[in-house]
Design a protein around this nucleic acid. Structure first.
Lengths: 110, 110
DNA sequence: AGAATATGTGAATTACAATTCACATATGAA
DNA sequence: TTCATATGTGAATTGTAATTCACATATTCT
């Protein structure tokens, strides 16, 4: 109906964090900076999939990349992400039953 | 590939906040508690659409509803949402160029 | 009871992000 | 320069949330 989007523009921010893979990537990067192959191996996911996810994470300023030889090392922008994830986990524990019984469990395995 | 989702379960939390409409609803409810019709009118959106959005917001513990006569008044669970939105907006201002040039602008109008 | 108001709901459709796959590029080693 | 390693990318497909619409339910008033 109406498409005038004047205010409140953090929906993309949240949308970007709204998949399991990206949360898992962030969880890994909390501990150490990693390149795509290492991430893909650790999470047991396709490299290309992880690469796409990292692109959107970096477009939103959640991760930074530095080149090191033939590798690209991705690191977490911890300044806002750490308190954000903490806040989210606290909320889920306290208020969000739907989040605790994961929606992913209902999803089909390929 | 792998479907063992043992850790990190706040992706649904973020996914739920990942649309414009829900962020707009939260923004309205910051100021005052409202019922569905009032929200729909203020946001210039279909009532049923707002109703569905409120359902998912309430399943995630973002809003609470109380019955008052024939109305249902929705109020914001401010405890975690207000600091969360503040954190998100600070991040967007500082780091997220992609979020500032809204993705919605590219979307087709019906 | 019947009408008006307020809201919920489920199923079909639509829209779009996530995934996949084949190929492009970039770096360093032999 | 050829090969191996590491990564990026775009386009087609797939999966799924958002939207729509027609109908159900619930409350209050006359």
């Amino acid at each position: 109906m109406n498409n005038s989007h004047a205010k409140s523009r953090c929906n993309l921010f949240f949308e970007t964090l709204g998949t399991r893979l990206k949360i898992d990537i962030i969880t890994e990067l909390k501990h150490e900076a990693l390149n795509v192959n290492e991430l893909a191996r650790k999470l047991n996911q396709e490299r290309s999939k992880v690469s796409h996810a990292l692109l959107s994470l970096s477009e939103c300023g959640f991760v930074n990349a530095r080149k090191e030889g033939k590798r690209r090392i991705y690191s977490l922008n911890k300044e806002t992400i750490i308190p954000l994830i903490n806040l989210a986990e606290r909320h889920v524990k306290k208020y969000c039953k739907a989040c605790r019984k994961q929606r992913t469990e209902r999803r089909k395995t390929k």
